[in-house]
Structure formats: C-alpha cells, structure tokens
C-alpha cells in the first residue's frame, strides 16, 4: 500500500505491506534507527515516538495506520543544532548509561512536559511507567526531566 507520512517535518512516500509495524518502517525503510526495538510486546517503551504530538509505542501500530499523519522521532527534536531541553537534561543529569531506553524516555518526557510543564516527582514517575530502564534505577532520569522542566519554564 502507498502511504504518505511526515516524519520529523519531512515528507515520505512509500510502498509498504499492511503488516509492517511502524517501528520497522522508521528503522528499516527510512533508516531512522534512533527509535529502538526493545521487548516487541508493548511493555518497554523503547520504541516510543510522537504521533501527531502524542506519545505512542511504534511496535503497536502498523505503518499504514499513520498514512497522512505526522511522526516525530528522536532524530527530529533538536533544532538548528541545539539539543532539545529534555535531551540537555539527560546530558546534564546523566540520565542514561547504555542509552538504549533513552530515545523513548525522552519522547515520553516531552509528552509529559507538554501536558504538565511543572510536574511533581511522582507525576514524572507515573508518566514514565511505560518506559523501562535497566541501568539507572530511574533516579537520574527523574532528575533529568526535572531539569528539563525548569529549563523549559525559563528558570535555568
């Protein structure tokens, strides 16, 4: 099937099988390998992308379902060579070790801060329930999101 998708502001037109998952489309067809495949069962959140601005797991959607829609991946959030504030937060607060979960963590955090610019620690943890990290124990991830929230509110 022919689909037309906007990914990170760029238009793509591709022929895909209906059964192709969005995550495979992004990685294998478009070459955007920043979106990771973790559990493949909808639990780990490594494949999180934004669909029309909302965080979704790209292993639980078919590419044909995003025909005519907008996707944002980790590759599309920095602007003019400047890291997104959430990326900066993960840098500043060492919110990662191996980095495997990081793209998903960052996109889920962007979703959170869009809906709630001033989240409590508990709200941050609740918002990241769908993203698993096996390295950090989450503490620095929470601190990274707190840092980003402050940055985005202009307090840093």
């Amino acid at each position: 099937m022919r689909i037309n998708v906007t990914v990170n502001g760029r238009q793509y037109s591709s022929d895909v099988e209906p059964r192709m998952l969005l995550v495979h489309y992004l990685r294998d067809v478009l070459g955007l390998t920043g979106t990771h495949i973790g559990c493949e069962t909808g639990v780990c959140g490594a494949c999180t992308v934004l669909l029309n601005g909302e965080a979704v797991k790209s292993c639980m959607l078919f590419a044909v379902q995003v025909d005519g829609q907008e996707i944002t991946t980790i590759e599309g959030i920095s602007q003019d060579g400047q890291l997104h504030p959430v990326q900066q937060g993960f840098w500043e607060k060492h919110g990662l070790q191996c980095g495997y979960c990081t793209p998903g963590m960052i996109l889920a955090s962007i979703q959170l801060l869009k809906r709630n610019p001033n989240p409590t620690e508990e709200e941050i943890r609740h918002a990241l329930v769908g993203n698993l990290c096996r390295c950090t124990g989450y503490q620095q991830i929470v601190e990274a999101v707190q840092w980003a929230a402050q940055k985005m509110r202009g307090e840093i």
């Binding site: 979704v56 797991k57 639980m60 979703q111 918002a127």
Partner: peptide, 9 residues
Amino acid sequence: IGDVQVRNR
C-alpha cells in the same frame, strides 16, 4: 490502564 502511551491510543 497500562501507561501513557497505551492510554493515548
């Protein structure tokens, strides 16, 4: 239900 991503969809 589930998590944020699941609830969005």
